[in-house]
Amino acid sequence: MIRVRGVHKYFGDLHVLRGIDLDVEKQDVLCVIGPSGSGKSTLLRCINLLVRPDAGDVFLEDVRVTAPEIKPEWVRQRIGMVFQSFNLFTHLTALKNVTIGLTHVKKMGKQEAILKARRELERVGLGNKLDAYPAELSGGQQQRVAIARALAMDPKVMLFDEPTSALDPEFIREVLDVMAKLANEGMTMIVVTHEMGFAKEVADAIVFMDHGQVLERGTPQEILERPGHERTKSFVGKILR
């Protein structure tokens, strides 16, 4: 479904991504782990073209999305993204946050959009919070609205950039439950996370990144219990208590 081939990215002099090769099959859940600054977020943003790779290619279902003819909007309609800092539109209610993409990007009719938005919000368990503004919601609720917003666009792939890192501990569970439910329903997901419990239970594969390179890839059991690479071993040793 998603193929990344030899992607490089520089920010000024900083070589953030040094030749990434990645494959994600349909309905796979891939967790990306690694220390801060290893380029995980940048990798995600290269996939939905929020950041343009300096070299290399990204393929979505055999379409080379890094080609100059492809408009980024086309890609982003098919790939959904959930951010670490939620990034909800603070001047819109939860319902309007979800419908704005539908009416303005997918050009849906207003009533149709509201129906769909309501369904998605109920799917993440916030059916009673349609008219709440983001500031009136807890962190976990805000993140779930963000997930609903991305889901409403019917993406083929969902990207999660450290979705629970900005949450108070009491709200992490509810967001992870929604993501697990999504995975069970067969969504293809790439999740950058520090939640190893989630990775162990839900992921089909884990990728370890450090200093802009993919150092190791394997099943959760392999990576978390029997890591091969030296750096993987030291990182996993620090993360798992």
Binding site: R76, M81, F83, N87, F89, H104, M153
Partner: peptide, 12 residues
């Protein structure tokens, strides 16, 4: 961040 989110939704 909100502008990033809007771009991620596909808005121009």
């Amino acid at each position: 961040g909100q502008i990033d989110a809007a771009k991620a939704l596909g808005m121009r």
